[in-house]
Design a binder for these strands. Structure first.
Lengths: 102, 102
DNA sequence: GTTCGTTACTTCGGACTCGACAGTACAAGT
DNA sequence: ACTTGTACTGTCGAGTCCGAAGTAACGAAC
């Protein structure tokens, strides 16, 4: 019970590709458009990125704001819960980054 | 560059099933045997668990100690790097746990 | 001396997830 | 007409994960 083995839910969500990076990226880039995220990631597949955005939105960690314009405009932002998650995630990714650079 | 989008390596590793839980579990259970982990997880598939243990060992986050006994005995433990990771991971899983319980 | 128990895994077929790339909708600009 | 810009969706082959069953090794029990 004290070993986190039984964890599901959010952790499963974060265990999908790019999930952790998306949370931190949306947090740092503020209200951000789909294309900006795609550019930031560089080599992500659009289908996977949009699946991840949908997952995180459904989980209540992101809000998706769609403007009725042509060409379309959509902006993603963290909810309060998403921001809470990002604060826990940030030290982890920061550590991972410094480790990978060695 | 500041948005963690390009992160690979450890993050990809942690983005696989049970990876984060295994790190925290091994940290809390001390030197721990394969079967103990399997019991703690309860409903894990043995193939996936052993794949994850191998990944983490190859990445230098776990050490695997095999004793020449019958029946076999194998113990897993965190390396210093694994412990550093666990310290960053722990607040995250703690948050996830409290969120999932709501 | 043959079966039983223990442990830490593999192996297997099928299901799920991912990546790359092509395609969609719509209007304004040329 | 035709191209441009945006945010996706569809498809399909490849990679990953799943649970169930099997494997190897040897000592102990019968």
């Amino acid at each position: 019970m004290e070993c986190y083995c039984q964890l599901e839910g959010v952790v499963d969500l974060l265990s999908r590709k790019y999930a952790m990076q998306v949370v931190c990226a949306v947090g740092l880039l503020g209200p951000v458009r789909y294309g900006e995220l795609e550019d930031a990631f560089g080599e992500v597949s659009s289908s996977t990125l949009s699946a991840r955005l949908e997952d995180l939105t459904d989980a209540g960690l992101l809000v998706r704001e769609r403007y009725d314009e042509i060409p379309p405009r959509v902006e993603y932002e963290l909810t309060d819960e998403g921001e809470a998650l990002r604060e826990h995630l940030d030290p982890l990714l920061r550590w991972a980054e410094s480790r990978d650079l060695e």
